[in-house]
Amino acid sequence: MLELRLLQGSLLKKVLESIKDLVTEANFDCSATGFSLQAMDSSHVALVALLLRSEGFEHFRCDRNISMGMKLVNMAMMLKCAGNDDIITIKADDGGDTVTFMFESPNQDKIADFEMKLMNIDSEHLGIPEAEYQAIVRMPSSEFARICKDLSTIGDTVIISVTKEGVKFSTKGDIGTANIVCRQNATVDKPEDAIIIEMKEPVSLTFALRYMNSFTKATPLANIVTISLSSELPVVVEYKIAEMGYIRFYLAPKIEE
């Protein structure tokens, strides 16, 4: 028996909106730790890792570890039927082949349940070790989204370079080139407006903007995004989900041979 009651149901709606175009189907895993997912895009160069910790749910019952395969566009369609202020409860029976999403309006005057068929998904699960990154950039998530959107009008790839001068996002395309430099700016009025760069060594990596733009669909989940970079390692783009966990995107760099 699984029963997870999330007071801030909009969080789950936003999570689905941020991953449904990157990943078509995925196994949601539920254990005492929480509700989690790890899935790769169809070309296996990008990965999303989600964790919503059990403590973040108002009620969290998970009698045994369970993995539920879901088609994400279908799940997103169902969650779109929940109001932004609704409480969402996820329910499933052990060994069952369906999951139920229950939506309660804040004043309890409307209760809806949507039952969705589960599917069997064979997916590779990757062990991602904690790594020391050469550079970690924390910046407003909206600023990062704007940069990715602007650069993708010029080119297909972005070179992210971190030096002591700051972080530079560059692209080039048929019509020209673009460079956007953000300098460390820790002395702003609001902490969420700060750009903080922790650099152990300079690093420069190239990524496909198509994926970066897809990751920025998680912008409504967090004011701050953290970008962790190391040579020869996939970049990690992390959005912390208030007091509940995180959504992390990994993307393999483009390499010249």
Partner: peptide, 14 residues
């Protein structure tokens, strides 16, 4: 030539 390696070249399968 520019290419992208798949993620299993960086992370092990569990």
């Amino acid at each position: 030539e520019v290419f992208q390696r798949v993620l299993v070249t960086y992370f092990e399968c569990k």
